[in-house]
Design a protein around this nucleic acid. Sequence first.
RNA 1: UGGGGGAUAGUUUAGCGGUAAAACUCCCGGCUCUGACCCGGGCAUCCUUGGUUCGAAUCCAGGUCCCCCAGCCA
Length: 561
Amino acid sequence: MVDTVTPAVEPGRDFIRDIVQADVDAGRVQGVVTRFPPEPNGFLHLGHAKSICLNFGVAQEFGGRCHLRFDDTNPTKEEQLFIDSIQQDVRWLGFDWGLHLYHASDYFEQLYEWAEHLVRAGKAYVDDTPPDQMRQQRGTLTEPGQNSRFRTRTVEENLDLFRRMRAGEFPNGARVLRAKIDMASGNMNLRDPVLYRILHATHPRTGDAWCIYPTYDFAHGQSDAIEHITHSICTLEFEDHRPLYDWLIENLPVPSRPRQYEFARLNITYTVLSKRHLTRLVTEKHVRGWDDPRMPTLAGVRRRGVPPAALREFVRRVGVARAYSVVDVAMLDSAIRDTLNPSALRRMAVLRPLKLVIENYPEGQTETLEAQNHPDNPDAGARPVTFSRELYVERDDFMENPPKKFFRLSPGKEVRLRYGYFITCQSVVKNDAGDVVELRCTYDPASRGGNSPDGRKVQATIHWVSAADAVQAEVRLYSHLFNRPDPGADGDALADLNPDSLEVLTDALVEPALRDAKPGEAVQFERTGYFAADPDSQPHRPVFNRTVGLRDTWAKVATKA
RNA sequence: UGGGGGAUAGUUUAGCGGUAAAACUCCCGGCUCUGACCCGGGCAUCCUUGGUUCGAAUCCAGGUCCCCCAGCCA
């Protein structure tokens, strides 16, 4: 695993850390305790990475701790598969919850007791109103709601009914437990929110022990209180829930007083970050799975070759604020390159091979040249590469009729073969269709190793592999999954899928050193990009994923010309 | 026409009464055995209108625009 150790980067300041700092300074909290509370109904994605880095980061910086708590209150949507993948992903990102792994379901009995407490206090009631009617009674954004006719039930009746709900006497949807707050509130969440619903479903952890389950609102804050969470950090859409969060905390005999703070969720251009959309991409087979390298899931970017340190750096650069925002995906790419550049070993790989024959190089002769594993880091050592009369170079590195700014090979032009010799293109061989299928060149024997004794300069250095010992490989090039920066802005996001997000090159040729590349190990294909072996690799046939391309100034120049 | 939030370069952030800072993108140039990396330089009427003040992105008042909320999802 390539995980560049970034020497103590200052975490960055933001309003959340300011609040925590102020609470610590004022002695309002004894120690800082945060939590990352995923619902196990999908894989973690880049948006979660922001939340994870924030919650675990804050805890780390203030010498506190961060819990991993599964918000598993809806058994109809949650699965063990997700519970497992989430833990793997959080660890991979570089965070450790220690012994503090919890589930909202751990607290079901306590939550139930607190629900009865509310009933006894006359602050909650069982409502038999059917769902559609309840919706009507809730009113609208501008009109107040109406009290349910069951709102005035006696404590005794409520208690009896609620217990019978738990006992399984009623079918799904027949009744709910509601908080008795204010049907005329401008805040919809305060119009007698549902606290418990009947769900005859098997829970991944509690099995069939329960047939009533607490809603998010009733479970979350109380779970925070049980765990003595000091700062409950969530995204902006829960802002309206804070009054309810506080109401429940204040009306229940909870053991601590957590506070909720909200920040803006992460959005990225050309990307979609919602469980609903990601789930559709997988179930409708638009991608190969949750870990498809094009997916913005942690499993996906991991398979693509992105090191966790790059994600942490990305999140740090993005910052934390309360304003709605959409981050340029280029910022992610940049963080990935900056993380990989210092550590990724350099290799030569020809993605689209073009045969090149050196006419004045003796047939049958080979020689061993030395190539640096990392030009900026001599400690990375060197490797031998075999040179011979027949080579392959990148198709894009030759143009028969080059524009003025083209520095690479063209008829009569001299370039350097990386770590090899200066060569000059003498002629081209074409097939019947007129396509260039082979380059005939000559080399300068005096330029061995890459420099000519006469001090002659060349405009370009290109990469190559020798024909005899090149390893055939499959290379998968990925680009944005969506073809517009704001997928879904005009309707269905899936209609904006980029049909060319995956390009598979089956005839790439890579140098022998790449034969046994391990998945998760990042390498740089010189002049091309950062790549990582895919788990699909076979011993005789490696498969590489392009993690991210190198910055390509020539591509811009070429486009403008 | 309710309630809750938010507006600083193209993007994401900093700035907390003293004359706009950083990263990314983009543009120009330098360096180069990766057209990479690296190094220079360029790119802002701080949403708006008034007010307070010697001085306002920061304080006050009024507008404008954007986001979230009417699940027995989270």
